[in-house]
């Protein structure tokens, strides 16, 4: 059967052109990292090449190591808790036999995922305020002094990780709940025959049944080790907490767009992109090796 391939080429054309411009274009723009980029001359203009000067400059900035450390620290905590909390909650939800209650719980805990960090940032700034915030009012009832969650370097990273988990844990349960329904019911029957109670069944049937999903999501989250969450940090941080909360992405934003040091900011961005790319590639490879995961 000979069917013309012409329409297929026509179909992909618009998408391919747009991806070429807006995803591959910026990849070409990475050359800026090796230039003293002057925007007026344009992307393909006669820019001055400076070799690795931009990278050298960044390494000499006093805050660079701090920013890198903050990024790794915040991202790692988010990855760890972002993996554990949804598993626990999914297992607990699975024990709910009352269907209406189960549905209502699910509906409620998925909601924060769909709200933007601008909206949530506004909410958090209000409820966490040390003078008026309702959280500190509640803490005050049990005799705890007001905590400046968004203004103290001790508390800021904790607040970031906590609020990120609060936003995403519910959504994270979806995939585990789906995996739990996929577990063969006969395994539970067999465990019951052997005298296992619900707790033992969870330990010896549910958890092993989730092993592949856990490994898969764990491995895939490796690629996020330099993603500490720009949207969240940008909407919650202030100069007071740069020491504990400034991350690569906010650093790039300030150097590049506020101070207009395009070459330098591109160099930092390139560093992040290269490291992330290696990690993502490794994580997909591991996921393929150990969980037989293929994206397509």
């Amino acid at each position: 059967m000979k069917v013309s391939q012409g329409p297929l080429y026509l179909m992909v054309l618009p998408g391919v052109i747009l991806v070429l411009i807006f995803s591959y274009g910026p990849m070409v723009g990475i050359l800026m990292a090796f230039q003293q980029f002057i925007p007026a001359k344009g992307l393909f203009g006669d820019q001055t090449w400076v070799g690795l000067d931009n990278f050298r400059y960044v390494l000499e900035l006093p805050n660079t190591m701090r920013v890198l450390w903050n990024t790794l620290y915040i991202a790692t905590l988010k990855i760890i808790f972002g993996l554990i909390v949804p598993i626990i909650v999914a297992i607990l939800i699975n024990e709910v036999r009352h269907m209406t209650l189960k549905k209502s719980i699910q509906t409620t805990i998925y909601l924060p995922h769909f709200l933007s960090w601008v909206v949530l940032g506004g909410i958090l700034i209000d409820i966490l305020s040390p003078s008026q915030g309702i959280i500190n009012m509640i803490l005050g009832l049990v005799g705890i002094e007001p905590i400046f969650f968004l203004g103290s370097n001790t508390w800021f990273p904790v607040t970031l990780v906590g609020s990120e988990i609060w936003k995403e844990f519910g959504f994270g349960t979806i995939i585990y709940l789906a995996a739990i329904t996929g577990i063969n019911p006969e395994l539970y029957e067999a465990a019951k025959m052997d005298g296992a109670n619900r707790f033992k069944q969870t330990l010896h049937v549910t958890l092993p049944g989730l092993r592949m999903t856990i490994v898969l999501l764990g491995v895939l989250s490796l690629g996020n080790i330099l993603n500490a969450g720009f949207d969240q940090v940008f909407n919650l941080y202030s100069t007071q907490v740069y020491e504990s909360g400034d991350i690569i992405d906010t650093f790039v934003y300030r150097i590049g767009l506020l101070e207009a040091q395009y070459g330098v900011a591109t160099a930092v961005g390139l560093f992040k992109s290269v490291v992330s790319c290696i990690l993502v590639t490794v994580s997909y490879y591991l996921a393929y090796r150990f969980a037989n995961y293929r994206i397509f």
Partner: peptide
């Protein structure tokens, strides 16, 4: 999905 040009090149484009 695995490699990005970064914020600044994206903005310049």
């Amino acid at each position: 999905m695995i490699f990005h040009g970064g914020l600044i090149p994206w903005y310049i484009v």
